[in-house]
Design a protein around this nucleic acid. Structure first.
Lengths: 362, 362
DNA sequence: AATTGGTTCTGAACCGTTACGGTCAGTCCA
DNA sequence: TGGACTGACCGTAACGGTTCAGAACCAATT
């Protein structure tokens, strides 16, 4: 009795006295050999415990891994807790499933800049979701000779992209608030760069933000409110590194502490807005009578509380990213997909109270 | 000008006039060559557009794919919508991330029995989550010569496993309801086999269920209630193929239509229980005064409404599965991990009304 | 009898890399 | 001066398949 080395296609062929080609054909091209021989091959395979052609060896030869890589430079918990990210993930997974492709989640340690995992991933292409412009992992992905689709951000020259028109979307929201009469606003946004900066944001930092999505939304707000004479340099903008309701709450607190006269809190995500709502409640501020709060994304929890927000088709975005990537062989495919968004007017927005009302009640 | 074939390690070596080994070492073992030469190699690589060693070829040679496969035989939307599955996924992802391993979601079309994707996945091991005993994909996974960990179900001889003690957990719950005085109960469970059977379940089907988890829970209930003289054959058990609140609601409706005297609805998942609560409300039944409803899992939405349930550590389960798999080289590791559960007494359970109360009010 | 066509199977090249066991020149030490 | 040791590099042999051009054979057609 000897140590049994796992059977290979070659050993199986030897056992049967046929060529490796024939064994290979038994698995991949049944029409290339007689049914009888094929039966024998398969039966012998079973007997020898041969599990079928090795996927890695096959991938090497065929130059196809049968999987799509997904890169997100966040703590993984983010992807599984943030409903927007989750919707994207689901859409992407559905697209992959539909094409029989695996979905390979690239392990990224957000702390360390270890790019090796990107180089180690045996995939036919990458989807990159919402990473900063200067992310080293993104650079590693782009250095690999496989098609890539970027979702949301960043915009990279010559790389396919799926996203929404962030600026237009938030402009619609801003215009609505302006129409309601809001001029004194505060903004709560997600992280703008890879460094942690939990606090107020200079206009300069806003403009040089490494997250295109956040940059666009802030720019949209600046444009809309600037058009009605609001001096953007005086608009308080608070940034939070972590994307959570707790962050939203603390940011709202920080902002309201600094500026009591704010009539509307515009948050660049629903999660942050939900936190802001909590903080407003804690302070005894009635929403929307005393304070308007808005979000961005259109997540179920936001809908539940009637949050005024911009709804974006997250699942569709993921699916589109997957389809775009998997259609990379087709030169006529679109290089960029911009999905529609929808302004959702909920019950968290209303005209601001007048100064009189603020002091003497409605 | 010729079509530039992508550079390989060999072409790079040729260009430099060194051996392939040396180029390989430049990437993998910097200490094996002089810093100067290494610099030249890397620089030439950049110049030639060589993206570093091909991951697939490397995997073939090293016999390591650097990824863990995850098999779940459900509509993928299930995995991304069911909070319990999601928690598992997150835990598993964290374990993988911690070990620098990718997580490869195997694309399974639940409709077709296409096992090819399992054979095509270049992974170092599999985690199988909650599939039926007789699942062909599971068989395909087991036929592959890589370590495998099964989560929740099924129990396969000689295969590592992570799970909870379903029977004990639900017995604790049942004992509690029994102590409260419930004898006339109804049960709503998830699918028991791969065929769709939306309706009442014979005892026979219960016992031959292909989902070990459901089988154990039903058996636990039968044992507990049998011990106090309840004739299990008369206990209505309703099965639903789809796991959704809508299913829970319709199952509750079907059950309450058939048996008005039921004082408690025991659901084998929180999702189903939430649906049952909706249906109870629709009928004007007050919970828990008129009807006790219980779940299983301990998901956030359940906690929010105060659902009486069994909480299981889903994230920890995922993490444990990952760790167990990644520790496969260690022969001293445990072969089976059973995690603790916790009975959560919420506000959806109370003593049953007496017959008098039922007719004349409390 | 020669040609054609079809089926079934084979041989050799190739996919791009890393493991393993060297070689070789130079240094150190007695 | 000679032997052991070290650092830097190389050659060969896998790793386990797929592919493609043909070989061999047989039956049917010309």
């Amino acid at each position: 009795m000897h140590v049994r080395r796992p059977a290979t296609l070659a050993s199986l062929a030897a056992e049967l006295g046929v060529s490796r080609t024939t064994v290979s054909n038994a698995y991949n091209r049944p029409d290339q050999l007689s049914p009888e021989l094929r039966r024998r091959v398969l039966e012998t395979a079973r007997r020898l415990g041969y599990p079928g052609p090795d996927p890695v060896a096959r991938s090497l030869r065929t130059r196809k891994a049968g999987a799509v890589g997904l890169l997100l430079t966040e703590n993984l918990s983010y992807a599984f807790r943030d409903p927007a990210a989750l919707g994207f993930l689901e859409g992407l997974a559905l697209a992959c499933e539909g094409a029989g492709q695996g979905l390979h989640l690239v392990p990224v340690n957000p702390e360390r800049e270890d790019v090796a995992a990107v180089h180690r991933a045996g995939v036919d292409g990458f989807v990159v979701y919402s990473v900063p412009d200067d992310d080293p992992h993104l650079a590693a992905v782009l250095s690999r000779p496989v098609p890539t689709v970027v979702a949301d951000q960043p915009t990279v020259e010559g790389v396919d992209r799926v996203g929404i028109d962030d600026k237009a979307a938030i402009t619609a929201l801003a215009d609505r608030l302006i129409a309601l009469g809001h001029r004194r606003i505060g903004v709560i946004c997600m992280r703008l760069a890879r460094d942690r900066n939990d606090g107020f944001v200079s206009v300069d930092r806003q403009h040089s933000a490494h997250f295109h999505v956040q940059r666009s939304r802030l720019a949209g707000l600046q444009g809309a409110f600037g058009a009605v004479g609001v001096d953007w340099a005086r608009v308080p903008v608070v940034e939070r590194f972590d994307h959570s309701t707790a962050s939203g709450a603390s940011a709202a607190a920080q902002l309201l502490d600094a500026d009591q006269d704010v009539t509307a809190l515009i948050c660049t995500s629903d999660i942050l807005a939900l936190g802001a709502l909590t903080e407003a409640k804690r302070r005894g501020l009635r929403v929307p009578q005393d304070l308007t709060v808005t979000g961005f994304d259109g997540i179920p929890d936001g809908e539940r509380v009637g949050l005024t927000t911009v709804r974006q088709p997250v699942l569709e975005k993921g699916r589109a990213a997957g389809k775009l990537l998997l259609a990379s062989v087709d030169p006529t495919r679109p290089r960029e997909i911009t999905l529609d968004t929808e302004l959702v007017l909920g019950s968290t927005s209303a005209p601001p109270r007048t100064a009189d009302e603020r002091w003497f009640g409605p």
